[in-house]
Every structure is written in C-alpha cells, then in structure tokens.
Design a protein around this nucleic acid. Structure first.
Lengths: 210, 210
DNA sequence: AGCTAACTTGAGGATGCCCTCAAGTTAGCC
DNA sequence: GGCTAACTTGAGGGCATCCTCAAGTTAGCT
C-alpha cells in the first residue's frame, strides 16, 4: 500500500507521461515528464524502473481505444466501410497521440502489455481485412503488413504536417484508400512482408537512435 | 590555392561525408565523417564551417541525378509512364541514399545549392504531373504537395523496412500509384497543401530533433 | 637546410539526455 | 509529540554529440 503522497505523485507522473508521450512520442525525455508532474527525476525512477515500465503503465488505455475502434468496425454493416473507417480512425489516433504512433510503429519488448495490445490489434486488423476481401471490395493482395506500412507512412506525414495543417494526413489517406479498392488494383510483383518481417522492421525502427 | 595535403584531406572528407550521409542521413554525427576520412574533427571544421556547408558541398551530384531522372521522364512517350517512372526512381534514390531523402523531405536554408536543386526538382515534378493530367491518366486533383507527401511516406517505409526487405517500399508505392490513376479517383474533401505549407512542413521536420 | 604560412590536432567547454544513490524530508502509527 | 519506514530529492557520473582554439606539425618556397 502506497503512502498518500506517493499515490498522488504516481498519478501526477502518469498524467504527465500521457501528455508528454502524446506530444513528443515515446522517446521524450523523462526529465520533461518529471518536470510536468512537479516531481524530481529521482521520484520518477523510484516509481518506474525504466522508460518501458512507464510506457507500459501509461499507454494501455489509448491502445484499448484502438481496439474499441476495431470492434465497432467489425460490427459495421458494410465491410469496406468498416475497414476504411478503422484505417481512418487509427490514423486519426496517430495524429492525436505520438505515443500511440510509436507503439504501433515500433516494438517495445520491455513493455509487455503494450506488445499484447498491439498483437490483438493486428489480429483484429486481419479480420477486418479478410472481411472486406470476402466482400470483394478490398483488393485481395492486401495484408496486415501492408496496413502497417500505411500506418508508418501516415505517421511520417502527420509528423511533417501536423503543425501546418492538422488534417493534411486525411487527404493522403484518401489517395491510399483509392488504391486499395479491388477495382483499382493492378498486379504487384513485390511480395508482401510476412509477419516476422514486420516484426523485425518494427524492432529495427526502435533501434534507430538518431 | 590549397596545399596538396589539404586538398587530399578535402577530398577524403567529401567522400566520407557522401558515404556517411547516405547511410545515416544528414543528421549523422560529423565525428563519424572525420573518422571515416581519417582526419580529425578539427580539420573537418577548418574546411566546412558547419554541417550545412558540408551538405551543400557534397549532396549536389545526387540531387542532379534526380533532376536527370526528371528530364528522362519528361521525354517519355507516355506521360503516365513518365510520371510513374519518375516517382519510382525518386523513391529508389531515397532507398539508396538517406541524405537525398532528408534533402527532399526537409529544408536546409543554410545549404543554398541543395535548396535550389530541390526547387528545380519541384518545378520539374509539376511539369510531370500536369503532363499526365492533360493526358487524363493521372487524377486531376493531385499536386506537388501530394507528391511530397508520397515521398515523406516512402522515406518512412524505407527507414522501417530497408534492413528486412530492401524492396518492400516498391510494393507500397504500387498501392499508392493505383490510387493515383484518374479512374481510381474518388473526390477528396480535404484541400491540398499549398506550396507555402509544404515549405513550412519541410522546415518543421528539420526542427524535430528527437 | 631553414623558414614560415598553411595546415592539423585533440583536449575540453557546452548541452542534453541517461540513470543512481547518499542524504534529507515526511506521513502516519504509537 | 516522537519515531521510523517510506518517500523525495538533486547533484553527479556517464555518454554522445556539438564546436573552438592554443599548440604542434608540415609542405614547399628560397
């Protein structure tokens, strides 16, 4: 059982972390988080042994928000619309929260809850994809790996344009969606990334320091 | 007139810079460049007062390679093919050289030659776009700003996947291209970024430190 | 061979981030 | 009110980069 002041600091830290991660991504300086929480950096490290513990503690509700979006999309009458809405709302989540963007784009092996939520998200995404493909509206060669690519791409566009036009990513997404309709599809020689490759790619992005 | 040893060091530095920038992008540590050139960091700073001088001195031939691609594309019989080839080859250049990627994605006001080459590239791109639109094959709402978005997106995908599948970006580009055909186009409510917004977005990306 | 302007060098101050730990403070029980 | 376990603190060591500059080296002229 935590002492009351400790409990309060814990909550402040979590709130600050949520905000700072949302603004600056999961590589944000922990010092900024402590500062925003009105607490010393030492206290942050007392509560969360490292950055990943903090991520794991703090990012889950946002990830679940995304799973919620997926639920709704799976229940949509029109499978294409479900798929397209899911993609759009996931991109929107990325535009609102750079922490989520990073959690989706990269892997965080030391943040198991986040990893699990991501895995669930990918399962859900596959269902959405297959449902729309069965309907015949989504091009049949589209995979979860391709969806991750779209999210990587969106992340970059959000990063570039958010300050200039916070909705610019929407326009880009429309172009992509137009290319994902089954009628628009031309055969693609290059094979899709398999799940293991996606995994390794997400891991590699994390290693990129500079 | 440079002393002969100085001349030699200058060339080594330029070569090293080209390599390191290509591998790690234009934020690469200058120390790595000096090291690869077999020269001390002090010598690097003697020759190039700052990172931007080095960029400006070193990146030009790669940028001109891109202009060359544009020339060829403008001379293509089929305007759509010219446009599509241009896009593909520019993306390929990005996949081969992270320095070029950065030069296209961001702005470098202190590297005037690179800036000029970029500006020329955008003019060329507009010609390619308009030519294909006149033909009726490229969707009429596509702009240079949208092309920059595609290049931002490609940059991110290359970054993520290059180590896992060096051609993964090609697949992604196909999806996008399928969405750029006039027949695939659905109306888009979100307006395009105007050139000034593109400018500011490219500037903002540079400010992103972490 | 001697001279000197040209050149090179790398230690070191500045910055920004990582994380630790010895010393100080405080909540809350008695 | 006093005690102590729980908690907080921030200075400081480590590291990676930036860039500078006083001291040392050398090319190449005479």
């Amino acid at each position: 059982m935590l002492r009351r002041d400790a409990q309060r600091n814990l909550e402040r830290l979590a709130r600050a972390a949520r905000e700072v991660f949302a603004e600056r991504g999961l590589n944000a300086p922990l010092e900024k988080i402590a500062e925003r929480a009105g607490v010393s950096i030492g206290t942050l490290y007392n509560r969360y042994p490292d950055r990943y513990a903090l991520i794991d503690a703090v990012l889950l509700d946002r990830m679940q928000e995304n799973l919620q979006i997926g639920e709704v999309a799976l229940a949509a009458d029109d499978p294409w619309q479900g798929f397209a809405d899911y993609l759009e709302q996931t991109c929107e989540l990325q535009a609102r929260d750079r922490g989520v963007t990073d959690a989706i784009s990269r892997r965080f092996p030391k943040a198991p809850k986040v990893e699990a939520a991501c895995a669930d998200g990918f399962v859900q995404a596959r269902q959405l994809i297959e449902r729309a493909q069965r309907q015949g509206t989504l091009r049949p060669d589209f995979t979860v790996g391709d969806l991750v690519s779209v999210l990587w791409a969106n992340a970059r566009i959000v990063e570039a344009t958010i300050a200039v036009d916070p909705n610019a990513w929407r326009r880009y997404l429309r172009f992509v969606l137009d290319g994902l309709h089954a009628e628009a599809a031309h055969p693609i020689p290059e094979p899709a990334l398999d799940p293991d490759q996606v995994d390794r790619a997400r891991l590699a992005l994390g290693a990129t320091k500079q």
